[in-house]
Simulated assay, not measured.
Amino acid sequence: MLRDSDLVGMVGAWQAPEAVAALGLVTFEIPLELPALEISQAWHPRHDADAAHAWLRATVRRVFLDSGRS
């Protein structure tokens, strides 16, 4: 959507710069201070014991922890 418009989007520093380059986009630092963005997960309690759902939650958590987010 961004590539084919005059819109501006935000891409986190942890996201793949290869994807940005492949789309022909240009990145630059945001010229103002922004508050920290809290990222969390939520799910219905019936999925607590679901092994596939637990794997997905753990994988998402690990991606963010590995990228310097908590």
Rank of each mutant, 00 (worst) to 15 (best):
L32S: 11
G9I: 02
L56G: 02
E38L: 14
P17D: 03
E33H: 14
L23Q: 06
D6F: 08
E38P: 11
E29I: 02
V63N: 13
W43M: 01
A58G: 06
L25W: 05
R61D: 11
W43A: 13
A52V: 09
A19K: 07
V26G: 01
A52R: 11
S70F: 12
R69K: 07
D6L: 13
A49V: 01
E18L: 02
S5M: 08
G68V: 04
L37T: 13
A13D: 03
W55G: 13
H44P: 01
F64A: 06
V11T: 07
V20D: 00
G24I: 12
L23K: 05
A16R: 13
L2A: 10
A16N: 15
R62A: 12
V63C: 12
A22G: 08
Q15H: 01
R69H: 08
E29F: 04
T27P: 01
V60D: 08
A51R: 03
V63M: 13
G9A: 12
R61L: 07
I30N: 13
L2E: 04
V8N: 10
A13Y: 03
V26I: 12
V63E: 10
P35Q: 03
W14A: 09
A19W: 10
L23W: 05
E18P: 00
G24T: 07
L34T: 15
G12E: 07
V26N: 06
A54I: 09
V8M: 11
A19I: 12
L56D: 03
P31S: 12
R61M: 09
L23V: 02
W43I: 01
V8L: 14
E33T: 15
A19E: 08
E33F: 06
G9M: 00
G24D: 03
H53M: 09
M10K: 06
L2S: 10
V8C: 13
W55D: 14
A16L: 08
G24C: 05
S5V: 05
